[in-house]
């Protein structure tokens, strides 16, 4: 039962990831929501972490750590739970690719 569920989840995840891979604007569109606190394209206007140009894996790991309660937060633990693993990957890839200014 458990195995079947895992297999099913993998299949679903796979097809989801493939569907997303076809949309070149996925990361851009997802990241746009972060701009109200982190600045347009992750370039911060002051007072909160600057995300543009940070290493992709670092950004993804911070989001996972917020989500899993491993990194303490006031708000990011609540926001990060709203994103799937593939969306976290897309966000991280987008911000990592942005110029720092």
């Amino acid at each position: 039962m458990y195995r079947t569920l895992i297999a099913l989840m993998c299949a679903l995840y796979g097809s989801f990831a493939m569907a997303q891979a076809t949309d070149p604007n996925l990361g851009r569109n997802l990241a746009a929501a972060c701009a109200i606190c982190h600045g347009t394209n992750g370039v911060n206007a002051g007072g909160l972490p600057h995300l543009a140009g940070l290493p992709r894996e670092y950004i993804a790991q911070q989001l996972r750590d917020f989500r899993d309660g491993k990194r303490p937060a006031t708000i990011m633990h609540q926001i990060s739970k709203g994103y799937t693993e593939s969306q976290i990957e897309a966000l991280a890839a987008f911000f990592a690719a942005q110029p720092t200014r």
Binding site: A35, I36, C37, A45, G46, G47, L48, T74, Q78
Partner: peptide, 29 residues
């Protein structure tokens, strides 16, 4: 999204600083 979102655990000066930063960033965005 189920399980996401929420409110502050308590009011704080840190969240006041974040509120100020939210304003600066949403204005520039």
């Amino acid at each position: 999204v189920p399980g996401s979102g929420g409110v502050s655990s308590a009011r704080s000066a840190l969240e006041k600083a974040y509120a100020d930063a939210w304003a600066r960033n949403i204005w520039s965005d």
